[in-house]
Design a protein around this nucleic acid. Structure first.
Lengths: 246, 246
DNA sequence: CGCACTTTTGAACAGAATCAAGTTTTGTGG
DNA sequence: CCACAAAACTTGATTCTGTTCAAAAGTGCG
């Protein structure tokens, strides 16, 4: 194993090689050279305060972004003001790919809590992915994963009833927190009831009612934005997954 | 300009350079060499009869496909049998990108009428897009376009009422037929009411009722699967677009 | 500490689903 | 080419889920 290069503290946060999110953003098994090249495309470390936009619909595509910390939403606005939230983003998620198609973003991305993103120069990513096949493949997988996720959301919006949607939403959050090393059974919602509704195609009152019902039935413990999953099996059964014996 | 190579009639249908769909599948301005390379990745010309599967959920990703002729649907199945149609595909559409993420497709693709697709070897596409930047860019745009389209479907499923959904659906078909040189105001539906419903998150009876209502109001002329748009402006107004004076 | 925002809950309402015929169209085989 | 069966479509009546409207209670930020 080659000796580690000396730490450069002022660049520390930029260095992908030592980033704890590495396995979420980057392919495994990059060599030293490839890693250095990849680090060169991550231009800077960008804080996005709560309520601020990372980008807006119509703004030109410069970069993709990796969420380093925090929580964001991306939403599509209908001209009459109706908002559809296309997704919630947390640590390790890559966002911005909506802008590649036309060179302009088509959705707004807003931080729901103070967040930090790594900015990935898109032209550099294109260049590097021609030179590093593993990076190319990784990038294609990330775009495809977004497409697959979208199909899941369509299934949810097109076929599920309110309770099923909420159950699927909670289980999805649980699974994503779990994958990031947090508790799968207890977490804080970063979004309002209205935003959950805007994601699930329901009104905020409906979200509130479903939470109350789950609370009554002992499926969830809901204290404002703090959620505790009491009976995961019941949630799974609701969305039709084979109930994990539990 | 270099002299054209002699025509090889038996390969004629494979030759992207002379394909009328070229501008839908390929980037503009490919040189002779690049074109030849691209043709080498289009492996064969595959007929898919009505009702037959192009691929199924779970089948391994080998290729992407360009629809050359015909009409297809891709659907996501819920374990309890509920079907969500994620999209309808016509001439020039590229499909199969759902399989890149996990190396296996996640939806079924079925021909709604006898169709023909060009099979594009995925590994070759990856290789070539490292060598031909225009191809790489084109491919990224196609994936991104799919993501953007998906966001539009989410908006439709999450926020629109039945009439708005049907209006948006008809206008979308109209625009796509138009882009392919067919009449924007008169066309045949290739799918059943049930399939329209499975796409729009509505039941077949609702589709039928909305068609009847549009017919009564003189917005559409519906004769079974033959649709004539009589008042495009009214449809546009329904989905909130600024009404084209008409 | 107060004001704005968020959430909960109830009651009335509306839109789409469901259930149920009945009709038309399509495809098949004689 | 016709007869017949299956599939697709239309329409009506009823039911149900989620929305809308409204008010009150809770939460948290400045």
């Amino acid at each position: 194993m080659p000796p580690l290069p000396p730490l450069e503290l002022d660049r520390f946060q930029h260095v992908c090689g030592t980033c704890s999110l590495r396995e979420l953003c980057l392919p495994a098994g990059l060599g030293q050279d490839a890693l250095a090249a990849v680090e060169s495309m991550v231009q800077r470390h960008l804080p996005v305060l709560r309520g601020h936009f990372l980008y807006r619909a119509g703004s030109p595509l410069h970069s993709l972004y990796a969420v380093r910390a925090g929580f964001m939403k991306s939403s599509v606005l209908h001209e009459d003001g109706r908002e559809q939230i296309a997704g919630f983003h947390m640590t390790g998620d890559i966002i911005g790919m909506d802008g590649i198609s036309a060179g302009r973003h088509v959705c707004d991305v807003v931080a729901l809590e103070d967040s930090d993103v790594c900015e990935i120069s898109y032209v550099t990513l294109e260049t590097l992915s021609r030179e590093i096949p593993a990076l190319q493949q990784h990038f294609h997988r990330i775009m495809s994963r977004e497409i697959v996720r979208d199909y899941g959301v369509m299934l949810l919006l097109g076929n599920m009833r309110a309770e099923e949607r909420v159950a699927a939403f909670i289980l999805n959050l649980s699974q994503r927190f779990s994958a990031r090393g947090y508790s799968p059974s207890e977490f804080h919602l970063r979004m309002t009831r209205e935003e959950i509704g805007a994601y699930l195609g329901l009104k905020l009152e409906t979200i509130s009612r479903v939470f109350s019902k789950f609370q009554e039935e002992g499926v969830l413990d809901v204290q404002n934005k703090h959620i505790r999953i009491l009976r995961e099996g019941t949630l799974r059964a609701l969305i039709g997954s084979p109930a994990c014996a539990r």
